[in-house]
C-alpha cells in the first residue's frame, strides 16, 4: 500500500508542477494565434525553409506543427496537398521535418520541469530535422518533373 501511495504522490506532484506552466502557456498561445501572429512568424521561418525547397505556403504547416503538435501540422499538410498549395515532394519534405520536430513548446517544458536541459531538448531536434529534410529534398524526384522531361 505504501508503494502505491508513493507512486501516486510522485505522479500528482509532477502533474501539478507541469500544470503550473502549461495552463498559462496555453492562454498565451491562444492569444498569439487569435491575433494572427503565427502567419507573421511564418514569414521569418520561411527563409531558412527556402534552402530545403519549401515555399512560404509549405512552411506554414511546419510552424503549426512546431507550436501545436504533429496532428495539427499533418492535418494542414493533407489540406494543402488537396488544395494544390504544396507539391507531393514538398509534402514529403515538410512531413519529414515535422515528424522529427513538433510540439516543441510542450515537449520541452515537460522534460525541463523534470531537470533536462531545454537547449539540448530543442537544438538537436531542429538541427537534425533540417539536415534530414535537406537530404529528402535533394534525393526525392518530383513525379511531375519526369513528365515535363518527357514533354521536352
Amino acid at each position: 500500500m505504501n508503494v502505491l501511495w508513493e507512486g501516486l504522490i510522485q505522479g500528482l506532484k509532477g502533474v501539478w508542477n507541469i500544470a503550473l506552466i502549461v495552463v498559462p502557456l496555453m492562454i498565451v498561445l491562444e492569444i498569439v494565434q487569435s491575433n494572427g501572429w503565427l502567419r507573421k512568424l511564418n514569414r521569418y521561418f520561411a527563409k531558412p525553409f527556402a534552402g530545403i525547397g519549401v515555399s512560404e505556403e509549405g512552411a506554414f504547416p511546419v510552424v503549426v506543427a512546431m507550436v501545436f503538435g504533429l496532428t495539427y501540422g499533418s492535418g494542414l499538410i493533407i489540406n494543402h496537398v488537396r488544395t494544390g498549395r504544396v507539391t507531393a515532394k514538398e509534402a514529403k519534405v515538410i512531413g519529414t521535418f515535422m515528424a522529427i520536430s513538433h510540439a516543441l513548446i510542450e515537449d520541452t517544458i515537460l522534460f525541463s520541469v523534470l531537470g533536462a536541459s531545454p537547449l539540448l531538448l530543442l537544438l538537436p531536434r531542429l538541427l537534425l530535422a533540417y539536415v534530414v529534410a535537406f537530404f529528402v529534398n535533394r534525393w526525392t524526384v518530383e513525379p511531375s518533373a519526369k513528365g515535363n522531361n518527357l514533354n521536352a
Binding site: V3, L4, E6, G7, L8, Q10, G11, L12, G14, V15, I18, A19, V22, V23, P24, L25, M26, I27, V28, L29, E30, I31, S34, E106
Partner: peptide, 29 residues
C-alpha cells in the same frame, strides 16, 4: 481567448494526469 486557452491548458493537464499518475504507480510497483 483567455477562457479558450485555460480550457486547452486544463485539458492538457488532464490528459497528462491520466497517463502520468498510473505510470508512476505502476513503476513504483
Amino acid at each position: 481567448m483567455i477562457q479558450r486557452g485555460a480550457k486547452a491548458g486544463l485539458e492538457t493537464t488532464w490528459e497528462l494526469a491520466k497517463v502520468v499518475v498510473p505510470t508512476a504507480v505502476v513503476v513504483a510497483v
